[in-house]
Design a protein around this nucleic acid. Structure first.
Lengths: 144, 144
DNA sequence: TGTAGTGCTTCCAGTCGCTGGAAGGTCAAG
DNA sequence: CTTGACCTTCCAGCGACTGGAAGCACTACA
């Protein structure tokens, strides 16, 4: 398939797809007229790139993960180690994202613009403390 | 607190923190000697920036979310609309991330380098299809 | 009271990951 | 056989940092 179709189906702009080729993330065939020709496997890689890039993985990380996809010897220890590390990172990201969601939900639901200190949202924003139930926002901020 | 401490506690490099100030994401006080002086609220914002940037939100999105944090009139409709939109996006990201995790897990656990077609991992990579149980990898790829 | 060392400041240059635009070739429809 | 959509390469620019130089500030220790 042509780059336009691949772009549409992967959710990536054609420009970006060409860039990914330039930096060696995938190598589509070319038809006789010089057009890039994407296989279904290429499309899967592109979709994967779209996903993982939008979730904050770097291009180099994506390259490693793609090598996992390509690697004919996926049983090798180092490749498995990469996958395990990424799994841990994904779990971390999942927790952070869930925290972000809870904080935003709380922000929308519970904050009424009053002036009480010890605002639970401030704790929520930091991503460190458990939520304190109730309470308003915009508390005076101490400067330690 | 000084920028070094803020960097350590937020997980952001000092360089990045200065950059965020330059583009107007936060405005720490200055002590008499010209050093930046970060409040606890500043630190929370920095932690929030660290989290949301690493999860794939753009700086402009972060700016909007921070305005939610700063806004004294958080009840206004547009601010709430921003929060709702972000909530939806976070839910989408959560689903994608979970999909990515499942795919990686599957890749590590079930792929033994054989040559069977219809590889479930390929479907998993694309993020579209449900996993087919069993099956190996490295299937022949058709070019449509 | 020096002075070494660490940390802060600004500024400027460079990198990564795209993104837009120009100039031109290809292809299907009318 | 022209129109218009789509493809090509190339080059420039932007967003988001990142590294390094030059210099001021603070702390510690002889």
């Amino acid at each position: 398939m042509n780059i336009g179709t691949a772009a549409e189906r992967s959710g990536l702009p054609a420009k970006t797809i060409r860039y990914y080729e330039e930096i060696g993330l995938l190598k589509p065939d070319r038809t006789d007229n010089g057009y890039r020709d994407y296989s279904v496997a290429d499309l899967h890689k592109l979709r994967f790139l779209q996903r993982s890039r939008s979730l904050g993985f770097s291009v180099e990380e994506c390259r490693q993960l793609l090598s996992l996809y390509d690697d004919k010897d996926r049983e090798s220890a180092d490749v498995k180690a990469i996958a395990q590390a990424k799994l841990a990172e994904i779990d971390r990201k999942l927790a952070e994202l869930a925290g972000l969601r809870d904080m935003l939900r709380h922000l929308v639901a519970n904050c009424h613009g009053d002036d009480r200190p010890d605002c639970p949202i401030i704790d929520g924003l930091s991503g460190e403390a458990a939520f304190v139930t109730g309470g308003g926002c915009h508390g005076k901020e101490e400067r330690p």
